[in-house]
Design a protein around this nucleic acid. Sequence first.
RNA 1: UGGGGUGUCGCCAAGCGGCAAGGCACUGGGUUUUGAUCCCAGCAUUCGCAGGUUCGAAUCCUGCCACCCCAGCCA
Length: 552
Amino acid sequence: METKPANNFLRLKIAEEIKSGVATEVVTRFPPEPNGYLHIGHASSICLNFGLAETFGGRCNLRFDDTNPEKESQEYIDAIQEDIKWLGFDWAGEVRFASSYFQQFYEWAVVLVEQGDAYVCDLNAEQAREYRGTLTEAGENSPFRDRSPEENLKLLSLMRAGEFAEGEKVLRAKIDMASPNMNLRDPILYRIRKVSHHQTGDEWPIYPTYDFAHGQEDAIEGVTHSICTLEFEGHRPLYNWLLEHLPVPSTPRQFEFGGLNLSYTITSKRKLKQLVDEDVVGGWDDPRMPTVSGMRRRGYTARAIRRFCEMIGVSRSEGVVDVAMLEHAIRDDLNENAPRAMCVLNPLKVVLTNYAEDQLEQLNAPCHPSREELGTRTLPFSRELYIDAEDFREEANKKFKRLVIGKRVRLRNAYVIEADEAIKDAAGNIVEVRARFIENTLGENPEDGIKPKGVIQWVSAAGGKRAKVKLYDRLFSDEGPDRGENNFLDHINADSLSVVEDAWIEPSLIKAAPEQIFQFEREGYFVADRVEHSEAAPIFNKTIGLRDTWNS
RNA sequence: UGGGGUGUCGCCAAGCGGCAAGGCACUGGGUUUUGAUCCCAGCAUUCGCAGGUUCGAAUCCUGCCACCCCAGCCA
């Protein structure tokens, strides 16, 4: 099941570096900002970073990039850690926080100022934008650019002391306002934010920007390969500039790869948060969400997610992976590992007229068609039972391999039956089917040589139980919900959730533990809900249907 | 119209000068007490386009074209 890591440009690159001595060890890090829950795109990055560390015998840190307290919270910090552990990864040592390096960053800011490489600027946001120039025109130097180191030092300490209002001043690197790379036009290093921080409380009225934090965090932790997505490529010169101008303890290098995009899915924390805030879904862990916790609740396994990440590979081209690949990964895992059981979602009563009313047989059925070691379970069989209404027609053509009047069908793991009559209500709806069971057909074909047309699932009315089943489908009906002109909210699939209040389940399912996954035969894979399921009120979520190649 | 990237089958992706891996999807056929799984077969004379170098190019060179990213005191 576990596959050997496929080669990708980073693995090859690092292998070369180690061979040539450019690199002597591999230390990576996964650096989420705690401003939302992890999603499938993060899972891919996690697999990459932890995977690289593992294949090269190095280590991978978990570091919260918490430099913008306004959008962050402890809830996210806790959820992110749980998700990573659930995915099966262990970070090296303690969890790290950018915020625990704030004092060091400040001291380095002082170094920059003393070197004449940074200055305090009084331009407000709008003015700064005007001075920055455009993509095709050089920017202009800020009128505050030539303040003396002494003055800058004083101003910076006043900023740190909370003497200025938000937006009144910033600290900027003094690089080149005419650089064709916008990131080098005197980027902002510190801004004033008088908000308390989830880790440092009210200790700081100023917070470093991503650019002034990331490379230094990596350097402090001895990260050797700082892997990020393509949009940070233009920041690399700045990342390097800072490391070159600061007395940092090591020299990490940044590498970029193309992050994951999935069809029929959005992977934007901002938009995912909007779905949660506007109650479009039940929460970050709603089974329809592409979040790690949502997929977990949906019934996806960590193994399938990791396998999927291995399948799609890693490259520098930005594409859209077909969600069918993710679906294949989970089906592949569950087909192999999920015990089988029977559930009737849309019950139609069948009465076996030749089966004694007081008779109740206990049939035995394997839990898996090809893995004997998964054991067996007991299926009560009785005169009255339920099949799915979809599996019966009064008459049908040869292609319909289910129950038809005058024809036979195999009840999965039980007898072959033959239908005689459909009982209808006043409105003409079929409410019951009268049928007969064929003797001696347990594990055998009928002695008269007339074989059943097909096999259907069933549950005994006498021994079966009831359960609520939530049927999930894709959250979005459009292949690219937020691509181009699309507004993702316009493409919500109205049928992404439908609830079956009273499905019939075979009795063995009543003992299901939360998060236990089954294949309901001929239907798909279902998981006992992680939070709401109980023996008294069983609730199953549909993970994914079986592949269905039956057309017409 | 500045800079940085990317272009190999419908999708993802190997390939790194020697004659186009693999997976997903799809299409046939076989097995089957799940119309599932499994099995077998098919699926790029061609690598964005045009030139050039070479005995030989997806791989090297030149020039085009397309798409993505950068003008947050977000990350």
